[in-house]
Design a protein around this nucleic acid. Structure first.
Lengths: 257, 257
DNA sequence: TACTAGTGTTCCACGTGGCGGGACGTTCGG
DNA sequence: CCGAACGTCCCGCCACGTGGAACACTAGTA
């Protein structure tokens, strides 16, 4: 019933390479890339990259100014029509606003994609200087973030995969790199429906997270993130669970994916 | 200096077709499409569409559940990295919030793309039932919208093109379909920096708009939109110009594109 | 000025990989 | 029981994408 196929029938070479190029713009803060940059990041032959770039530009997927390429408005337009994101966002936003109202900390909405967490939405009041690592459309490892652990708790096969492939790299001295410890935490999260991040992803930053469940699957997670000393875990825990229940109810009214 | 090339060196057929498919998801409210739907919308041979869809799925550009395809998270991720949109949004959002605070009407941010207006951002308080035609990532004709006319006023060649190709279709009885009238309005907008929409795009909806200028080019436009009787043009006009100046100043601090 | 190392652009013979008509299996509604 | 509409699969043909190599241009260095 409604399974997502994960086959790999050799996508057209040309296409695959084009997406490599588009992905090149999603890594690192550099957002205008030159032909040479792209050949480096994708290790494509120069002339091939050149040709593909020309095609992408003529399709509006990229825009070119002089020697610099950047993602085009057409990609934005398509991205805004991604239903999974749209539905989630619409359902979650009001409750995220409530959470912000109560906590005055940054509120995140994220989903699991592969072994990483993809941020769908973020609310932070009036652009504080607080530079968090997160960013809408950005990715972070699942095992070192609150939302990530909330999601992993309900995706045991993904958790196992992360552990098996030895991806538990320390991002701070507090990152959990011990598989057994991580699994214990995930088990606790399954019971309390809360996940925490205490300096594990960035020093001085704490976070309380909870999954959004639908049909016993974690379709997303929300979190409240901020400076260690301002995050009161019990108080935020209640608030965030309340918000999560509201979102689940809203999602339930729409026919589930 | 910094011109965008608009050449057309025959993009790879395969690629062009894939974008046709992706575009198919951006038209109409239908957001899950079946193979047959897609062959209809793109008029591709069935087997070809089938193969391309499989490729797109295996790349994560599309997701498949049973017979239904929808845009994948990867497209969202890429879309969020479109710099032109990101920079504009970041610069404009605070001022748009101020505008909302003052007017309590829907606030739009849009850019010109081809002969249409592409909506980048929208603020509307607590999800009122008010269903406007606009939508983030959506398009509307430039000539019948406030933001569109604000942008056309500073893109005379595009305005000429729209008129020449006879695209002035009436969307309501009040839509301006007379080229001369439209040009006069654009000239007025160039002087006052304000554009109006009075039932021209949708009945009962008025709108006040203004361009965001950088180097004497209109890079975007903002508008305040709402029910005809609640839009006070003079008052909103001042507010929206103030906001526009703030945005222009913010954009100016970043090196212009 | 000459030289080098880095860019972006163009060309073209080669052969891979995309093409799509058509056959097949399945699920509907009548 | 049949036809219609859908998704899947196959396979010979040949267009089209491929990428090495040559070219052009701009620094920066000696």
């Amino acid at each position: 019933m409604g399974q997502v196929d994960e086959t790999n029938p050799e996508p057209a070479e040309l296409l695959s390479r084009c997406f490599d190029i588009l992905d090149a713009f999603c890594r690192g803060p550099a957002e205008k890339l030159t032909l040479a940059d792209i050949t480096r990041r994708t290790s494509l032959p120069k002339s091939t990259a050149h040709r593909l770039l020309a095609s992408l530009v003529s399709l509006g997927a990229l825009e070119r100014t002089g020697p610099a390429y950047q993602l085009g408005l057409r990609m934005f337009e398509i991205g805004e029509h991604v239903t999974r994101k749209r539905d989630l966002r619409e359902a979650a936003l009001p409750f995220m606003e409530d959470l912000y109202e109560v906590t005055h900390q940054t509120v995140h909405l994220a989903v699991l994609d592969g072994t990483e967490v993809l941020y769908i939405e973020r609310i932070q009041g009036h652009q504080k200087q607080r530079q968090l690592a997160s960013r809408v459309g950005g990715r972070l490892p699942a095992y070192s973030t609150g939302v990530g652990k909330a999601l992993l708790a309900f995706n045991p096969q993904t958790a196992a995969q992360i552990i098996k492939t030895g991806r538990l790299q320390a991002r701070t001295p507090y990152t959990i790199t011990n598989p057994k410890l991580l699994l214990e935490e995930l088990a606790a999260t399954r019971k309390t429906l809360l996940a925490f991040d205490r300096d594990e992803n960035a020093l001085g930053i704490h976070c309380v997270a909870t999954p959004i469940l639908a049909n016993n699957q974690a379709v997303a997670a929300i979190s409240v993130t901020g400076p260690a000393n301002t995050i009161q875990e019990e108080r935020i825990g209640s608030a965030i669970r309340t918000a999560a229940l509201g979102i689940e109810r809203t999602l339930g009214t729409n026919p589930p994916t």
